[in-house]
Amino acid sequence: MSSREEILSRLRHNTRETFDMPDLAALTPITFADPVAEFIHKTTTTAGATLIEMQPTDRLDDLIRRAYPEARSVASNLPGVRTDVNPDTVAEAQELMHVDVGVVQGCIGVAENACIWIPQQTKEKAVCFAVQQLVILLPRDAIVSNMHQAYALIQTSTDYFSRYPFGTFISGPSKTADIESALVYGAQAARAVTVILTPP
């Protein structure tokens, strides 16, 4: 018997009693009267990110430049963003490690923990992690209260995982407290994150 068969048969043999799946719809998770306000609060406090509320008259490029005035290179494939590097066409993902700012589209914001769902949208997902600073665009009306709602949206949508088999929730910049519990931003991945809330 192969290891696979051995493991499966031992599991079946050792199951003495079975338990039912609980009714998760019966949970009453926390919701917020104003999820956008809560999202902004969590993003700028616990998550350690910066947040810009874009006005209809604002130009995206101006906001990005204002957020990171010293940036020499921007990587993105989003329309309307002036870029120097395209994560769809770089020869190696390693090139993105030297990019100052990556700009990606977030699809769902979660108020309870400042998570933003970012489905992979470029050939190289390194644009979310390897760049020095990350700008995440998020439509104001795409913010929900909690993770249950976010996962329900992802599960029922056909927009995600169809082009690229990866998606991630990001909540602020890369951080660590591994040296004497001291909180430090900028561990291995993006050392700063700016969230731009775009008008609906």
Partner: peptide
């Protein structure tokens, strides 16, 4: 004691 980890990544296949 954090509301979330910074990254919660879902891998559903190899990268291109």
């Amino acid at each position: 004691g954090q509301e979330t980890t910074v990254y919660t990544s879902h891998f559903r296949g190899p990268r291109p």
